[in-house]
């Protein structure tokens, strides 16, 4: 009897623990998603200010699509993010390759200095880039913003790609050359395809970092090349209107769609990694 009661006590304790951990998880998710939900809901609010609910409307979306100035800023953001992503992924991947495969002086210094742009306060980086541009007489504007974004994205790419490459078997490249492929062919037929997962995740990382950067961009954008987040921040001072909510709601929708597509693609790739059903003979 005694034994049984003790056991059930233990079970009860376990059950309670499970309940507590569920609540804990729910709270965490709430912290993340409730603000986003509020923002989405208020994009349908029939009121100019974002303070209390008045009634349902889609007029902010209508306003947005009938020629809002916000699209221009979004366009700036996208141009910068795409360029910064492509260039920083190329630079970062080649950099990681060099760091992984060659021995040279200062390698240790370079390896550890990679983390400086990662940990340095953005405000410091913004000021230093602004000073640099002024010293070099480089005009502020979208090219300056793009360069700045490449600067802080590239180290992340190097760090991600370095991790990926450390698990890569270099004898695969030797096998390719052994079979008659020169270095260039080997790079494009073997190395790049093997690095695709790493390239994708570092590209996502770079794109995300670039598209929501405010502080550094604020310093180097100049008056006519503001990006969307910088613009939104400046609008806060005047009072945010729900058309911003509408735009960000659309962006979130696109993002969710992107994640879904990504998951589908990944699942398909996993399936394919086991082989194809294609007939060869």
């Amino acid at each position: 009897m005694e034994e049984n009661r003790r056991l059930s006590k233990r079970l009860r304790r376990k059950r309670l623990g499970k309940r507590v951990s569920n609540v804990y998880a729910a709270i965490i998710y709430a912290f993340i998603y409730v603000p986003i939900a509020v923002m989405v809901i208020f994009s349908f609010n029939d009121q100019l200010n974002n303070y209390y609910w008045v009634g349902f409307t889609t007029k902010w979306y209508v306003k947005l699509f009938s020629g809002s100035e916000l699209w221009g800023y979004l366009w700036n953001s996208l141009v910068v993010a795409v360029l910064a992503t492509i260039i920083s992924v190329i630079i970062g991947t080649l950099g990681a390759m060099g760091l992984m495969r060659f021995e040279f002086m200062l390698k240790k210094v370079i390896n550890s200095s990679l983390y400086i742009p990662v940990i340095i306060p953005e405000i410091v980086m913004g000021i230093s880039l602004l000073m640099l541009y002024q010293i070099c007489n480089f005009p502020l504007g979208l090219p300056a913003v793009t360069l700045a974004h490449i600067t802080f994205c590239a180290p992340f790419v190097v760090i991600i790609m370095r991790g990926r490459m450390s698990g890569m078997d270099l004898s695969v490249e030797e096998a390719s050359m052994d079979l008659g492929a020169n270095r260039l062919e080997t790079f494009f037929r073997i190395t790049v395809p093997m690095l695709v997962p790493g390239l994708l995740s570092s590209a996502f990382m770079a794109f995300t970092l670039s598209i929501d950067d405010v502080i550094i961009t604020n310093f180097v954008a100049g008056p006519y090349s503001t990006t969307l987040p910088v613009k939104i921040l400046s609008m806060v001072k005047m009072g945010l209107h729900p058309d911003v909510n509408a735009l960000t709601t659309i962006m979130i929708a696109v993002l969710i769609l992107g994640i879904l597509v990504n998951n589908l693609v990944q699942a398909a790739l996993r399936k394919r990694s086991m082989g194809t059903v294609k007939t060869y003979f």
Binding site: D169, S171, A175, D178, I190, M194, G275
Partner: peptide, 14 residues
Amino acid sequence: NTVFQSYALFPHMT
């Protein structure tokens, strides 16, 4: 031609 210790097959190819 070489047969490698770790096989060194190309993982992304059939």
